[in-house]
Design a protein around this nucleic acid. Structure first.
Lengths: 181, 181
DNA sequence: AAAATATGTCAACATGGCTGACATAAATTT
DNA sequence: AAATTTATGTCAGCCATGTTGACATATTTT
């Protein structure tokens, strides 16, 4: 255990700043706004995932199962390799979740027609129902949030969210999320 | 193992729709936009956390340590109970992370002056440096993203993000993230 | 003096990541 | 035709971070 270092000055009511304190950078107004934005992103994302979490808990699934159901529902016939690309996890991690989702009848595998090494993934009807249950509250939450902002709010929001992506990832993400009919 | 259910129609190139398929709801244009927004949130949040993740890995810390360092840095002198409220984890989970962060000299505890049961938390100078390292890339990413949107973009983005919060949580989150001088 | 509060700790367990090694079938290349 | 590459699966073990339950200590409040 290292010797305790000097404390930072306290900013909380009731806290007691001592004599020897590290001088924190005085935050500029812009810095303050940016930190608030960072924290807002943290808390909003947490609430955004809370509705599905509740449903998942009922049926003994976790977020990992949710992601699989969602991206298979959204990309019927997706290959295991493509799903791994989207989720960015190892095949061993995916295998475990995939097995459970298949065993419980939410998902089926179908040998690829052209390339018979592939195991293309599809939701069953039960899977489609589950996906709808999971996505409905999120869709509603996002719908209300976008509506609550003024005109042009949705566009601005999407621009900012898109710009938060790694520059190198933007084309990939666009390909993944946009489905042209 | 249940019998496999019927598959959904495929939408992916190369996929082979079979005879017996579940009829997915035909997504309206609004639904499509909302789903894209949901997925954008997922991918943006992932990239948003990727820079700190890299730094954390170097020093053998995880996201849990990051959260502790961040919210103690942002709320010097915060009590353990308040930190638990923010993080919404059990005290046993926090204890483990807290111990590691303290042992490695990034954080110190100080008995509360008024209430000597409290253990108020402060970053050491090393902790403040670490926090700055972690927050700098996120701040920069958010700064660029907000700047990339048109005028009023920041306001619209914040409105939407704020509306994504559970209604009941909004006053609490506002209290947590806004620090008036 | 008793009760409530703030914090800490021990033990056991679950989820969902990871690495490494190896196996199989099918497609591609030589 | 044989060799190689690719798509997928599997076994085994490890790690980070969450959980519940029970109990301990110091301090404050009633």
């Amino acid at each position: 255990m290292q010797p305790p270092g000097k404390r930072l000055e306290s900013a909380e009511k009731g806290a007691s700043p001592l004599a020897s304190v590290a001088r924190p950078r005085v935050p500029t107004s812009e810095e303050e706004r940016l930190i608030e934005a960072i924290e807002l992103l943290f808390f909003s994302y947490r609430d955004f995932t809370s509705d599905p979490d509740t449903i998942l808990e009922e049926i003994g699934f976790g977020r990992a199962h949710h992601r699989v159901v969602h991206f298979v529902g959204r990309n019927p016939g997706i290959t295991v390799a493509s799903l791994l690309d989207i989720l960015r996890i190892t095949k061993q991690s995916l295998a475990r979740v995939l097995r459970e989702v298949i065993e419980r009848g939410y998902l089926v595998q179908q040998t690829g027609e052209k390339d018979r090494r592939q195991r293309r993934l599809y939701l069953t009807e039960a899977g489609a129902e589950l996906w709808e249950r999971l996505v409905a509250p999120q869709r509603e939450r996002v719908r209300e949030a976008l509506a609550a902002s003024g005109p042009g709010g949705e566009t601005a929001w999407r621009e900012v969210m898109f710009s938060l992506l790694d520059e190198a990832q933007r084309p990939d993400v666009e390909k993944i999320i946009i489905k042209e009919p």
